[in-house]
Amino acid sequence: MTTTAKRIGTLLLASAVAAGVANTVHPRRIPWVQDWSRQVEARARTAGIRVVPFSAVRTRLGRDAVFIDARPAEEYAAGQVRGAVSIPFHALEAHYGTVAELIDSGQTLVAYCSNRECDDALMLATELQAMGATNLLLYVDGFDDWQRRGGPVEAAP
C-alpha cells in the first residue's frame, strides 16, 4: 500500500508539473487565478437570475419562451435570434409598454446580448425582475454563441 501511495503521489505531482508547463507554453493559456465573481454569470447568480446555456434555450425557441435582444437597435437589425423582441437596455424607457406586455403574458423571458463580455442582458434582466418578471432566464453566451452553434437567425425587415 505504501508503494501505491507513493506512486499516486508521483502521478499527482507529474500531472501538476505537466499542467504548469503546458499552461506556460499554451497558445490559449489561462490565468492561474481568476476573479470569477466579476463575470456576468456570477453577478446574475448573485442577483438570483437563472443563467442558461444554448442547449437549454434552443429547444424553447418558438414554444414557451420569448427571446429579448438587449443589444443596441442597429446590432439587432443586422441579425437576431429568430422571433426575438428588441429591447435595447440603453433605450429601455422607450419600450416600457412592450416590457409590461411581455411580463403580463406570463411566458418565459430569455434575455441575451452579444456574448459573455457584455452585461446589457444582465442589466435588462435585473430591471425586468424589479418590474415583476418571474419566469426570467439569462442566455449568458449570447448572440455570438447562438450563431456559432447554428441557432435560427433572422435580420430585421
Binding site: L11, A16, V33
Partner: peptide, 18 residues
C-alpha cells in the same frame, strides 16, 4: 473562485496522465 483555474488545469492533465 481563486481555485477554479488551477484545479481545471490540473484535472485535465491528471486525466490524461492517468
Amino acid at each position: 473562485g481563486p481555485l477554479v483555474n488551477m484545479v481545471a488545469l490540473w484535472l485535465s492533465w491528471l486525466e490524461v496522465v492517468s
